[in-house]
Design a protein around this nucleic acid. Structure first.
Lengths: 125, 125, 125, 125
DNA sequence: GTGGTCTAGACCACC
DNA sequence: GTGGTCTAGACCACG
């Protein structure tokens, strides 16, 4: 479910946090369902529990997860998060488009690239 | 021409390298023209010359610049670089589009966002 | 009467203790009347009896409740408690006011906020 | 400048984070001025550097501080933060006032307590 | 068994 | 010297 890449320059806790956030965003977990415990994940990934803990703290800061002492970590209501994520993504598209305009790329090229990728993603579902 | 932001969490050398690379890509310098010397830039930006040197080394690694011992740093032929940059940007658009598909964003939303941003950038030229 | 919020980061026993204390303070129980038994509350809330027991112990420590072995838990004389609570609350108001002074908030702003909230609470009774 | 209370039930990192945040909010540091380094604070307070680091991370999350790798931690622009803090404080006043209404405390009592404390704070400046 | 906090000691990237 | 990350091992509160 989670793959650690030691060649990745990102810190381990961030790889884990990002990956879990991705899974949550894409609906891999039910809201309010329990996530793997700090210790079990630590064992599974052969990583220090503190590092897992940092990943969960990061997810809590981002609002993806809430934690209850003595009980575990649970996935938060992802609706608002998803909206934020969507806004973020569109903002990135806008930035890239403006940059593309500066580099002389045609609007068509961008839109076609978007379309092709979008549909290939749809097919793989 | 170059602005250093001490609040930026990126290292200084990277800010300088990125900014110079941007200027080169957008045609602010003629190919083979000479760039400011390490020392002059260091004085101008009130920064340690080692940091400037590292920025130039970074640009050389990326192929934006070539350096001649005892003479200075010069802008490389940017044609290939520009092509790479364009490919890079389109690749990013594709990635975002695939991610968008996974999040349930409509293709229209993406293309419209791109179009609006593209045109607003064109107007500001 | 008591609602458990599993998303609340406070421990369960504290949620229960706080809620019962609130009810007692606001006169929801007669003095010396019997409170629900540990077991019945445990069943009703679908919670471990140990947790309920800890809540009652907490309330006893605070002086809201007294317990008679073999008979149950009973509400204490709340008069003194109420006075303490009032003193507590006024103390908090004073602390906030001093902090407000340090932050440059006007006294009027505080008093008006207090008045508006006070009256809105009165209307909802 | 910072006092650690080992009898305080709050974690050390939170005591430090809160205290520094307080100092920043009350203008004890110039914006963009450098805060004590992780290591120096660790020595001064006789505490593990990791704990100080966690305090700074916490302050960064709250927007009180920004950190630049290799250079140190600096106080952020506190204007927005101060506004948030003021809103927070007034919200607390409102909560207390509503609670007071439920307990039968007079509005006068609250406002007078606020006034007395407010003025005593003003005199001590 | 669960998460939360803390210490001690280490290594890295950046300046 | 600066912050950032990671490991190892420990103790506590909670259920």
């Amino acid at each position: 479910m989670i793959h650690i890449d030691y060649k990745d320059s990102r810190p381990l806790y961030e790889q884990i946090s990002d990956r879990l956030g991705e899974l949550i965003l894409h609906g891999a977990f039910e809201p309010d369902s329990q996530l793997p415990s700090v210790r079990s994940l630590a064992v599974e990934l052969a990583i220090n529990p503190n590092t897992i803990q940092k990943a969960y703290t990061d997810l809590e800061r981002k609002g993806f997860v809430y934690s209850v002492k003595g009980r575990g970590n649970f996935v938060a209501d992802t609706l608002k998060i998803k909206e934020e994520k969507i806004n973020d993504l569109l903002k990135q598209v806008r930035l890239l488009s403006m940059e593309a305009a500066g580099l002389g790329i045609g609007l068509d090229d961008i839109q076609q690239a978007a379309e092709a990728a979008y549909q290939s993603a749809g097919e793989s579902l």
